[in-house]
C-alpha cells in the first residue's frame, strides 16, 4: 500500500536540461526528467513496466562530453550533466531511425508514429521501392491473439514481459540475427506447440500492434474497429481471489479487448489467460 515507504528518500541531483537547471531524484533517467519538466521525447521500445531496453534509439539526446548520442530512456541522470534534447544531431538520428523503421516495418497501427514522421520530416520512401522489408504474414494460429510480425520493430518488450521481468514463461525469444532476427518460439513453431500460456502480457506491452487480440485483428480486417467509440472501464477479475484489475474496452456493448492498469499494485499491467481472455461468457447473449 502506498503508505509504507520502504526506501530511504532519494537525493535530488542537479543537472542542465536544454540550458535550464533542473533537479531530478537519484536514479531517474533523462526521460523521466524530461517528462517531469514537460518535454516530450518520442519513444517506441520504452515501457513503463519494463526495464529500458533502449533498442529503438528514437529517444536519443546529446550529453555533453559523450562521443555518441545517448538514449534518454535508460541513461540515468548524473549531477552536472548537460543534456540537450532537441539538437540538429539528435533530430537527425531520430529522423533516420523513423525512416529506417517505416521503410521496413508496417507502422500503420503504431500510435503517434505518423505525427513524429511528420514532425521530423522523415521520408521513408527515399530508400527506393526495392528497400528490404520484413515481409511477414500475420500468424493466426490460435483463437486468442494474433502475431503480425510485419509490424514488429523488435523492441524486445514482449520478450521481456514473457521472460524474467514478469511472466517468467520464456515462451518467446529473439531468434536469428541482424535484419533476419525475429521474435519466435522454440523452433519457430506455431504458438500452440510452444510454452505460451496465453497470458497476453506481451500484447499489453507491444507498442506497434504487432501483437493484438484476435477480436481486434478481425475487427480491423472487417473495418469495424472504432477506438474513439470504445469505453474503458476498470473493474476486478472474477476468476480467482487475487483481485486483478481489468480494464474492459467496450465497443457497442461488446468487450473487445482487456488490459490492466500499469500502475496497479496488484497486476502491474499483467494478467493471466482467464483475466485477459475469459470474458466471452458475459456476452454469450443468445
Amino acid at each position: 500500500m502506498t503508505v509504507t515507504e520502504l526506501g530511504i528518500p532519494r537525493r535530488l541531483l542537479e543537472f542542465t536540461l536544454d540550458g535550464e537547471a533542473v533537479r531530478a531524484p537519484e536514479g531517474a533517467t533523462i526521460l523521466d526528467a524530461c517528462r517531469a519538466s514537460g518535454k516530450d521525447i518520442p519513444t517506441l521500445c520504452e515501457g513503463d513496466t519494463l526495464r529500458p531496453k533502449n533498442a529503438c534509439r528514437v529517444c536519443v539526446v546529446e550529453v555533453e562530453g559523450s562521443r555518441t548520442l545517448v538514449p534518454a530512456c535508460s541513461r540515468k541522470v548524473e549531477p552536472g550533466m548537460e543534456v540537450r534534447t532537441d539538437t540538429e544531431r539528435s533530430r537527425h538520428s531520430r529522423k533516420i531511425v523513423l525512416e529506417l523503421l517505416a521503410s521496413s516495418v508496417d507502422l500503420s497501427t503504431t500510435p503517434q508514429v505518423a505525427e513524429w514522421i511528420k514532425e521530423y520530416e522523415a521520408k521513408p520512401d527515399r530508400f527506393g521501392p526495392d528497400a528490404a522489408r520484413l515481409n511477414e504474414e500475420p500468424r493466426v494460429d490460435n483463437d486468442l491473439y494474433v502475431r503480425d510480425y510485419d509490424k514488429c520493430i523488435l523492441c524486445y518488450k514482449c520478450v521481456d514481459a514473457c521472460g524474467d521481468q514478469w511472466q517468467n514463461t520464456f515462451a518467446i525469444s529473439v531468434a536469428g540475427r541482424g535484419f533476419d532476427a525475429r521474435i519466435a518460439v522454440e523452433q519457430d513453431a506455431p504458438l500452440t506447440d510452444s510454452a505460451c500460456v496465453y497470458c497476453g502480457n506481451c500484447i499489453e506491452v507491444c507498442p506497434t500492434g504487432a501483437l493484438s487480440f484476435k477480436s481486434e485483428f478481425d475487427m480491423r480486417a472487417a473495418g469495424t474497429w472504432d477506438e474513439p467509440a470504445q469505453t474503458e472501464t476498470t473493474t476486478i477479475c472474477a476468476y480467482c481471489g487475487v483481485g486483478c484489475n481489468l480494464t474492459l474496452h467496450v465497443q457497442d456493448n461488446e468487450i473487445v479487448k482487456v488490459t490492466s492498469p500499469h500502475d496497479n499494485p496488484v497486476t502491474h499491467g499483467n494478467l493471466c489467460i482467464k483475466g485477459r481472455f475469459g470474458y466471452q461468457h458475459v456476452q454469450n447473449r443468445d
Binding site: 529503438c56 529506417l100 521496413s104 530508400f127 527506393g128 528497400a131 523488435l154 541482424g178 535484419f179 532476427a181
Partner: peptide, 24 residues
C-alpha cells in the same frame, strides 16, 4: 549486415540500407 546482432534499429536496418545503396 551479416554481423549486426539486430538489437538496435540504426545498425539492424542501417547496415541493410547501406548495403542496398552500395549495391545500387
Amino acid at each position: 549486415r551479416d554481423e549486426s546482432c539486430g538489437q538496435c534499429v540504426p545498425c539492424r536496418v542501417g547496415t541493410v540500407r547501406q548495403e542496398e545503396a552500395l549495391n545500387r
